[in-house]
Computed example of a mutant assay.
Amino acid sequence: MDTTPQQSRTDHNVWAAIFADDPLALRAWLVGIGFEEGIVVPDEDGVSIHHSELLWPEGGRVMVSTRDTKEQEWEGVGRVSLYVVTADPAAVHERAVAAGATITRPLKNESDYESRGFSCTDPEGNHWSFGTYAG
Rank of each mutant, 00 (worst) to 15 (best):
T4G: 07
Q6N: 02
Q7W: 03
R9Q: 14
R9V: 14
H12D: 07
N13H: 08
V14D: 00
V14H: 02
A17D: 13
A17N: 09
F19P: 00
D21E: 08
D21M: 00
D22A: 09
D22G: 03
L24S: 11
L24H: 07
A25V: 05
L26V: 04
R27K: 09
A28R: 07
W29M: 03
W29T: 00
L30Q: 11
G32Y: 06
I33F: 05
F35W: 10
F35E: 00
F35D: 02
F35L: 12
I39D: 12
I39L: 13
P42K: 03
D43F: 07
E44K: 10
V47G: 05
V47K: 10
I49G: 09
H50M: 15
H50P: 01
H50I: 00
H51D: 14
H51R: 02
S52T: 10
S52Q: 11
L55D: 12
P57S: 08
E58D: 13
V62I: 15
V62C: 10
V64G: 03
T66K: 12
T66M: 15
T66R: 13
T66D: 15
T69V: 08
T69S: 04
E71V: 12
Q72H: 03
E73N: 00
W74K: 00
W74L: 10
V77H: 05
G78F: 00
R79T: 04
V80R: 08
S81R: 11
L82I: 14
Y83E: 04
V84F: 06
V84Y: 02
T86P: 13
A87M: 07
A87N: 11
A87H: 07
D88I: 02
P89T: 02
E94Y: 02
A98H: 05
A99D: 06
A99F: 04
A101F: 09
R105Y: 12
N109Y: 05
E110K: 04
R116L: 15
F118Q: 07
C120Q: 07
D122L: 00
E124P: 13
G125A: 09
G125D: 11
H127S: 14
S129Q: 14
F130R: 05
G131E: 12
A134F: 09
G135C: 03
G135P: 11
